[in-house]
Each structure stands twice: as structure tokens, then as C-alpha cells.
């Protein structure tokens, strides 16, 4: 199959991929760019393990063609924080035991990141609705919700003190 160029900005870096038109964004990220944080859980947009941020929106990268991301800005879990400077959400997920097997976690945190950009002061109900596209089989969500609410509070504190 004839390949095509796809240019994206992924986690702040410009990349130029030569890939098949049918390549899904999740596979371009995982297999061609070695960004293995986002995972594949269902291949059908239900589970959200593959969630990445694309042009300021959460997308399920298992049902987006890489070609559709041409020119896009992509942020994955790898772009949210670094070992020396974790994102508040990453800290709060650990603090409140918001993960167990870790498979949903990159997608869940990436989704929570966008949710808090859109709504910095969510209620518990809004958090639950806002992450309803991301399934977790281990935690029962209670501690995930707690972690996101705490992260929102901390992010607002940081904003206020700045």
C-alpha cells in the first residue's frame, strides 16, 4: 500500500511519519514513534485506554487515522509531566490510589487533564460524567474521582498563588 507523509507535533516535538493511509493514530504513536503510554483496550472507542489530546480535545486514538492528525498537536501521557516535574494529576493518582493495573491510567489522566482545562472547578458528578468515556476495571472509580477533584483543587491553588 502506498505510504503518505503525516506531520504532527507530538509532545512538543515535530515529527514526520511515512505511513499507510489506513494506519490508526494509536499505532502510529505506539509502533512508529515508540510512545507506548496510550494503550489499546477495545479498538472501538469504548474503553478510552488510547485517549490522547489532539488540538485541545480528548480523542480516542484507536479510531482516528494518523492521516487525520496531519498538522495536529498531540499530547500524550508522556507529554504531561516529567520524572522531575510530575503533573499534579500524576501525583494525585498515586496519592489517592487512583490506579491498580495501570492499563487505563495514561488515558484516564490524559482525559482528566483536558476535563480540568475545560472545567477547572468540576463537581463530583461532572467529573464522573467527564470521564465516562474511560473505563477502569480495577478501581471502581472512587479513588480516581477523588484524585481528579484533589488535583483540581491543587491546580487552582497554584493558579491563585501565581
Amino acid at each position: 500500500m502506498e505510504k503518505m507523509h503525516v506531520k504532527m507535533n507530538v509532545n512538543g516535538k515535530e515529527v514526520d511519519l511515512l505511513t499507510e493511509p489506513r494506519t490508526l493514530l494509536i499505532h502510529a504513536l505506539r509502533e512508529e514513534l515508540g510512545i507506548t503510554g496510550p494503550h489499546v483496550g477495545c479498538s472501538s472507542s469504548h474503553c478510552g485506554a488510547c485517549t490522547v489530546d489532539m488540538n485541545g480535545m480528548s480523542v480516542k486514538s484507536c479510531t482516528v487515522f494518523a492521516a487525520q492528525a496531519n498538522g495536529a498537536e498531540i499530547t500524550t501521557i508522556e507529554g504531561l509531566g516529567s520524572p522531575d516535574a510530575l503533573h499534579v494529576l500524576q501525583e494525585m493518582f498515586k496519592e489517592h490510589h487512583g490506579l491498580q493495573c495501570g492499563y487505563c491510567t495514561p488515558g484516564m489522566i490524559t482525559r482528566a487533564y483536558r476535563l480540568l482545562q475545560e472545567n477547572p472547578n468540576p463537581t463530583e458528578e461532572e467529573v464522573r460524567f467527564g470521564i465516562a468515556g474511560n473505563l477502569c476495571r480495577c478501581t471502581g472509580y472512587q479513588n480516581i474521582v477523588k484524585a481528579i477533584l484533589e488535583a483540581a483543587a491543587k491546580m487552582n491553588e497554584i493558579k491563585e498563588s501565581a
Binding site: 505506539r30 509502533e31 515508540g34 510512545i35 507506548t36 503510554g37 496510550p38 494503550h39 489499546v40 500524550t76 501521557i77 508522556e78 509531566g81 520524572p83 510530575l86 500524576q90 493518582f93 498515586k94 496519592e95 490510589h97 490506579l99 493495573c101 495501570g102 492499563y103 491510567t105 495514561p106 489522566i109
Partner: peptide, 21 residues
């Protein structure tokens, strides 16, 4: 005790079988 596993899982650095290349 907070989990030692979480550092890699929260940073997308878990090592699941499909990550192997």
C-alpha cells in the same frame, strides 16, 4: 504505604506485552 508501581504507570512507562518491539 503508597504504591511503588505508580511512578511508571502514571507516567506511561508501564511495560505491557504489546509495548514490546
Amino acid at each position: 504505604r503508597k504504591r511503588v508501581e505508580d511512578a511508571r504507570f502514571t507516567q506511561g512507562k508501564g511495560n505491557y506485552v504489546d509495548d514490546l518491539k
